[in-house]
Simulated scan of single mutants.
Amino acid sequence: MSNSAPITITSDELRERVEDHLGQWIPDNLWDRSEPYARRKLDLCRQRQPEITYYDNDYLVLLTADTVRETAFSDYTIAASANITAARAQ
């Protein structure tokens, strides 16, 4: 059992807070992949380090913002790589 406060934030609340933190709107396809991944990462942290007390809703907002950025960067990298590969094939 984790010593951190329970995670009570809804998906809509989380998205609103993450968008405020990032200062931008998050496309649905990016959000739909990032949110569950961030929640899963937090669940794993809470299981592996139950003594930590700051794995809470606020931490989830920050973790999700980072996950959104990481996912967007991965999408960009994959698209750029596909474009380079296609250009070389011509």
Score class of each variant (00 low, 15 high):
1 M>R: 01
2 S>V: 04
2 S>L: 00
2 S>Q: 02
3 N>A: 11
3 N>T: 06
3 N>H: 05
4 S>A: 07
5 A>E: 14
6 P>R: 02
6 P>N: 03
7 I>W: 02
7 I>P: 06
8 T>F: 07
9 I>M: 07
9 I>Q: 03
10 T>M: 08
11 S>H: 05
11 S>I: 01
11 S>L: 01
12 D>P: 03
12 D>A: 12
12 D>I: 05
13 E>D: 14
13 E>P: 05
13 E>S: 14
14 L>Y: 08
15 R>I: 10
15 R>L: 10
15 R>F: 07
16 E>F: 06
16 E>H: 10
16 E>S: 13
17 R>L: 11
18 V>R: 00
18 V>A: 02
18 V>I: 11
18 V>W: 01
19 E>L: 06
19 E>G: 09
21 H>S: 10
21 H>A: 06
22 L>P: 05
22 L>R: 07
23 G>Y: 07
23 G>N: 06
24 Q>T: 14
25 W>Q: 13
25 W>K: 12
25 W>R: 11
26 I>T: 08
27 P>T: 11
27 P>Q: 12
29 N>P: 03
30 L>R: 08
30 L>V: 12
31 W>Y: 13
33 R>F: 05
34 S>H: 08
35 E>K: 01
35 E>L: 05
35 E>D: 08
35 E>R: 03
37 Y>M: 11
37 Y>F: 12
38 A>C: 05
39 R>G: 02
40 R>L: 08
40 R>C: 04
41 K>S: 12
42 L>T: 03
44 L>H: 07
46 R>S: 05
47 Q>R: 06
48 R>K: 13
48 R>T: 13
49 Q>P: 01
50 P>W: 03
50 P>I: 07
51 E>A: 11
51 E>Q: 13
52 I>V: 15
52 I>Y: 03
53 T>L: 06
53 T>E: 14
54 Y>P: 02
55 Y>L: 12
56 D>Y: 07
56 D>T: 02
56 D>E: 09
56 D>M: 06
57 N>P: 07
58 D>G: 05
59 Y>W: 10
59 Y>A: 04
59 Y>P: 00
60 L>R: 02
60 L>E: 08
63 L>I: 12
63 L>N: 09
64 T>E: 02
65 A>I: 08
67 T>N: 07
67 T>S: 05
68 V>K: 03
68 V>G: 01
69 R>H: 14
69 R>Q: 14
72 A>Y: 07
74 S>G: 09
75 D>G: 12
75 D>Y: 05
75 D>K: 06
75 D>I: 07
76 Y>R: 10
78 I>N: 10
79 A>T: 15
80 A>E: 11
80 A>G: 00
81 S>P: 02
82 A>W: 11
83 N>Q: 15
83 N>H: 14
84 I>L: 09
85 T>R: 07
85 T>A: 10
86 A>Y: 04
86 A>K: 13
86 A>D: 09
87 A>P: 08
88 R>W: 14
88 R>A: 15
89 A>Y: 09
90 Q>T: 13
90 Q>S: 15
